[in-house]
Write a protein that binds this DNA or RNA. Structure first.
Lengths: 407, 407
DNA sequence: ACGGGAACTGAATCGGAAC
DNA sequence: AGTTCCGATTCAGTTCCCG
């Protein structure tokens, strides 16, 4: 690991892998061209460098032959306990699957992992592509595997999960009981074993870890793969390493890594990244989607039955209607219980100041509707009468309860 | 549609489809039997070490032949504007993909849809399978397609997205400003176009729609497929219809449907389901398509935001709160539009008579709230004021729009 | 018709300016 | 200082048009 030349190798991976010892690698991550029949190019953010690679092929057969040669070599280099992850999309994933079944044997197919993400959209007729596929094969049945866990679903019956299970005399799993017949709990719950659909945000336009190399993958995706199938000090190899995401992830997790690529520019980039590895600290990942949801959005209950989008990132505007009004968006605010009509109107106006003539609607709470005559509200704001939350309030008062959020 | 014999056909679909007219079907949903034995390794023509793609077709085995024959027949029956959805899992999906590419042409491959779901964990070494794949092929480029939309991501800055963009002198996209430097907005948005990863709960073991037939799919999954690619009155065909989920979904959406199956038992089950179609009420997923809900369920809309359980089998009680009140359940009734406050209160009291001191709440409609002074209501019933649909009415009037059904 | 390049799209993130 | 919120940036993007 001292030497960049030892980590990064320039050239086609086939001859490079050929010199590797049999059974020397713990994990291969393969991210080859996907058979898109396009040249992929991207300019760095500072406009300095333009990186590109060609994904153009004479035929399906040519592509298949290219893969089978290199995958066979990977197979040879893998330890008995090793695994290979093959990244592809739906253009040629089925061909890769056939080839890998042939090289590794169908019995060593372990999973078809779906990496799903949300991305900026386009106007395609059809469904927006929002996943890629990672095929997971092991070298043998004795492959190394660490079960990772995720959070429980909200609907899971946790107290049942907490119960300890044992095997009865016939070897069947049953819930454990103590001497008095009471269920025995299990201590900490670790979570649900990781499934084969992984929702990981796509490397987004503003991410710090973005280096301007086309088709760059999130470090988090590679970290997950590496954690699943290797231990610290194990050797990870990426024969199509590009800008070196795999190497960065391996480095961050204390694994050894080798990257191979035909592009000298890509390897330079990879060397730079290894010198100062960056992983995006994404708020979305750290705190979850829920952290964006505004608590006071339950005010919007009163809009139910109307087509609207909740607005999470603006304090003045609560919702925008799906319908437009004379070509303008319709912005809605619901008056807060502790807020005067004027204050609500001002908040709405301020938020919409730069929205260029949107239609502004303020929903006024019933108990303040009587004050309307005295309200000093900008002319641009249209007031609408509501008695929404009324029922919720009434119920809370009548019952003396803080009502739980429902449904 | 009058006649079950016309909807349900017994037998292998090959001869049955053979009698269909060319170009008579708008949509095929194919959910073939998964062969229990593994797909055999594919052999090369010369039996040698060299791999070639052409060999894949020289070695097609029985499963492939079975599929090719039937898919070719489907292809013949499809309208030019028609589409076919092929349901598979990761054991044979790649083979199906090859066959479909061959029968429909690779240019008519539209999407690899991932149906993802959470499932009860098993203790297998490896990743828990939690998706299946649906391959979407069209008969031609002129296929019928309705874009469905989903909610925006919580992290989306919605109000910004409303702004129009133009190009500056260097051809770079920037936000448009009017003469006074104010941003120009773009009209309203209907939502994000549906992607190719669909998270739909697996039919849970207690779902009402479950009829005990293996591999039964959720009605919602089929409804989505049918809505994407057909109009009302179009013809949907399912050559492996099993217990008839596709037919039920088509029926619920006003499409014509034909189901074929080799099992007489399956067809009997399908006939029963068609006579009384049931869709599991998953409130989480039902949002958005509430065009014709039962009126008494509609009443409960005003309770949204409060944790409650709808009560289905009791004429007097509409819902029970999740929260209890001094150890007693809280029973709620919503006053019907054509019902006096007194009648509603009596219905509620009668229903709760044997509930042992439950807290009784009657939600009174706004237009009757004024009559409250004169109401002669049992002391055990607490009255709560509601004004549901009021805001919707106001908005419609202010904007002069017929508002679309929302969320 | 078909391939290739130019023109255009639009939602989802994060960075950082503005409070 | 911490939080809110604006808007820049991106395209294993797509469409369109022309030779």
């Amino acid at each position: 690991m001292k030497d960049a030349d030892n980590i990064l190798r320039l050239g086609d991976c086939l001859p490079v892998l050929n010199k590797f010892e049999r059974g020397s690698v713990d994990l291969f991550y393969i991210d080859p061209p996907f058979f898109t029949q396009k040249v992929h190019a991207l300019t760095t953010r500072d406009g300095g460098t333009r990186y590109s690679f060609r994904d153009l092929w004479a035929s399906t057969e040519a592509y298949g032959d290219f893969l089978i040669d290199r995958l066979s070599e990977c197979h040879r280099c893998l330890k008995e306990t090793g695994s290979l992850f093959f990244h592809c999309d739906d253009t040629a994933g089925h061909l890769a699957r056939l080839i890998l079944d042939r090289v590794f044997g169908p019995e060593n197919f372990q999973a078809e992992i779906i990496w799903s993400f949300r991305r900026w959209s386009n106007s395609k007729k059809g469904l927006m592509p929002s996943h890629q596929t990672i095929l997971f094969y092991s070298r043998s049945g004795a492959f190394k595997f660490h079960t990772l866990t995720t959070a429980y679903s909200e609907s899971t019956n946790l107290d049942q999960i907490l119960q300890k299970r044992v095997r009865d005399e016939r070897g069947k799993a049953i819930y454990a009981r103590d001497d008095s017949g009471e269920p025995v709990t299990n201590g900490a719950k670790r979570g649900v074993p990781l499934g084969d659909v992984w929702e990981i945000p796509y490397l987004n336009p503003k991410a710090k870890e973005r280096v301007g190399y086309p088709t760059q993958k999130p470090v988090l995706l590679l970290e997950r793969i590496i954690q699943l199938c290797t231990d610290p000090q194990d050797l990870v190899a990426d024969p199509f390493c590009g800008s070196g995401t795999t190497l960065v992830a391996a480095h961050l997790l204390g694994r050894r890594a080798i990257g191979i690529d035909t592009s000298e520019d890509a390897l330079k980039l990879a060397a730079q990244r290894l010198a100062a590895p960056v992983r995006t600290e994404s708020r979305l990942l750290e705190r979850g989607r829920q952290s964006y949801v505004r608590e006071d959005l339950d005010l919007l209950e009163c809009l139910k039955g109307i087509g609207y989008h909740p607005v999470h990132r603006n304090k003045g505007i609560d919702a925008i209607l799906m319908e437009e009004w004379h070509g303008k968006p319709v912005c809605i605010r619901i008056q807060r219980p502790d807020e005067t009509i004027e204050d609500a109107a001002i908040a709405l106006c301020n938020a919409a100041e730069r929205k260029g003539g949107a239609k502004l609607i303020l929903v006024v709470m019933e108990h303040q509707w009587g004050l309307l005559g005295r309200a000093n509200v900008p002319a641009s704001v249209t007031l609408v009468h509501s008695t929404t939350a009324a029922i919720r309030h009434s119920l809370s008062e009548v019952l003396g309860l803080r009502l739980v959020a429902g449904q």
